[in-house]
Design a protein around this nucleic acid. Sequence first.
DNA 1: CCACCGTGCTGAATCGTATCAGCGGAGGGG
DNA 2: CCCCTCCGCTGATACGATTCAGCACGGTGG
Lengths: 328, 328
Amino acid sequence: MAKARRVTSIDVAKEAGVSQTTVSYVLNNVPHQKISEETRQRIFAAVEKLGYTPSAAARTLRLGRSDIVLLLMPDLPLGSTAIELIEYLTAGLERHGLSVVTRIESGRTVATLWKDLAPAAVVSFAPVAKQHRADMRAAGTYVVNVWGDSDGEPNVMTRGQVRVGRMQIEHLVAQGHVRVGYAAPADARMRAFLDPRLEGVRQGCADHGLASPSVREVALDTEAAAAAARAWREEGVTAVCAFNDEVAIALLAGLRAAGLAAPADLAVIGVDDTPMARFAEPPLTTINQHMEAVAAELADTVLTGLERPDARRPAPPESATLVIRRSA
Amino acid sequence: MAKARRVTSIDVAKEAGVSQTTVSYVLNNVPHQKISEETRQRIFAAVEKLGYTPSAAARTLRLGRSDIVLLLMPDLPLGSTAIELIEYLTAGLERHGLSVVTRIESGRTVATLWKDLAPAAVVSFAPVAKQHRADMRAAGTYVVNVWGDSDGEPNVMTRGQVRVGRMQIEHLVAQGHVRVGYAAPADARMRAFLDPRLEGVRQGCADHGLASPSVREVALDTEAAAAAARAWREEGVTAVCAFNDEVAIALLAGLRAAGLAAPADLAVIGVDDTPMARFAEPPLTTINQHMEAVAAELADTVLTGLERPDARRPAPPESATLVIRRSA
DNA sequence: CCACCGTGCTGAATCGTATCAGCGGAGGGG
DNA sequence: CCCCTCCGCTGATACGATTCAGCACGGTGG
């Protein structure tokens, strides 16, 4: 069989008995171009009949930018929370004709990929050099930097993360704790999320007249975690907000190793509600972030940035809930 | 400032004082086109001087296929094992001019994305409808289906997964166990990995003259896991191979809830060596897969499939090791 | 001396879309 | 009756690469 030729807009034009220009106008809803309703329908019918799909490559070549949104993720395990976020974001943007692809970022190969894809927007959960960001913006790519480099860039995540930190403290205060600690991850790549969450905890402490939390790094290592636990105990700390469930679980393991028990000796609260959280010993109290809401907000930011104003929808108000188990 | 125009191969041609055709020949190493060494150098110099980068869109339009490799992942948490695999694969293919992007697959929107990207190859860890695969192949995309649908498609992962299952059994046998169980995940999306691993366990049992393993589903729920543990005990099972660390950790939680202890009452061995494995109670014995080797094999498959024969390198022989902790 | 061939290079067509500039005809105002 | 405007549509070009066909030139064989 002959190598099937692609169906082009010219084929559609022939089928509908109009010019290729008209087909393009109709399919792109070009404003200020009056096309009769009858012609429109003929064209849509032809598209349907021939199974026409526009060539993304040709579009990209002509317009200088594709309909792709590049999502940059750090080279860290993506928990169910992150996966959920990606899925909702993908679905949300797909609805507006944008395709999301993800790149797990380990180094500085973004530039190459960016040139290859010519994406309409880049959403980055991974750190990107300021220079790169500037280059992309200069070339017309809309860049959403989820990492708040505090340089006044659009940043949708920060606010929610602060709130998560506050929620941790609210629960501990409600349980009567007065002297609290904060378990930070040893992995520096987490900084972008650490900062706002910790800030939320600090704010919460201030609001309730508590002293600022005693911050310690808790490495993913039982001995190190045990040492941290003992140190907190000596300071009189009775409860610890962990950066996330992973850190929290490590800390629980450390407690057991140190012959201590949660929540009696030290209460622990995590963030994420990982599938593993319920199997911890004791089962982990944690904060469950509603990724659908977060993703919606993120999608909104992108669409607005790309000036597709038809897209706005109010973000659901509640975006996190407390999951009480036994560790705090 | 004037909107910076793109540097094209025509600019390079002018700078080097040759035709654009020649530039293309040189940059693509077109065989059977003799270009003098001197001209080559002039062109490379011009490329360097002007900072020329070929337009991927134009290439794609002309060739009908891009230099992108689309990696399809299921919408499951990507543990550090998976992330590592992705990273190594990305790095390995990048070396040969291929850009890897990932799509977290939840539904059937692959087709759209595939058309948008016109990828050179698709590597799928997620199930893809047979029809889709056929379409892609018909259009010239090289498809690697890691899910072995047993329809004779290239499948690099299966063999290694079988080996992993065997390794689990080897350890248990060495510990003197005779009657073993297999803890399967409740999530059906894991089937593709479950089947070969379980097959490996079965083979191992046969080799050592043991009865076939007693297979039970272990949901990620403490009560369900406890029930499964009790059931195995009643059968006389003394050790269980878990599908992965996640299932293994759930099972350990179930054991504690049932008042049983690992490994005395029931030994448990996982797969993956998740970061959480060492914090389990008791710390989990597991199999650590060497993703670098797996990724290398996968990259090799893709490159061979795309007929870039320069790329072959022998895959490292060892690709998994046993990590002994305390649960088995 | 002519025919022929290989070397090193060039001209022009092509991929499929978006968009600028313009064209015929109908209708209205003077 | 003529001019002008607006509607609905079309022709032609550009985007930036690959590649087919072919050209000039110098050397070699007959």
